[in-house]
Amino acid sequence: MSSELIMTSVDSDQEAKVVVSGEIDIYTARQFKEKLYQFVDNSTKDIVIDCSDLDYIDSTGLGIFVGALKKARLTDRNISLENIRDNIRKLFNITGLDKLFIIR
């Protein structure tokens, strides 16, 4: 019954990519935050987050994306989000975060 979240990542010569699937809410947020922040800290490239299998995100999860972007920008990097579903895109639009992230 609990939310489930799976995060996989690839940091190669070509790309730094994170694939997130499942739900990011108050239950899964801590785990996601630790993994994402660690990935941002360890990588030296711009980061792409693939959200094609991300079913749900709440404000806690959006806050984690913002925190990760702030971390990346400390070293002049960027985070882009790709394949965002309509229901999640709507949240980015409402909160104005669509102007902060590169969404493709």
Binding site: M1, S2, D25, I26, Y27, Y56
Partner: peptide, 10 residues
């Protein structure tokens, strides 16, 4: 408890 918020959503 955070694990039951998904129950509220359902």
């Amino acid at each position: 408890k955070p694990e039951y918020v998904s129950v509220a959503r359902l």
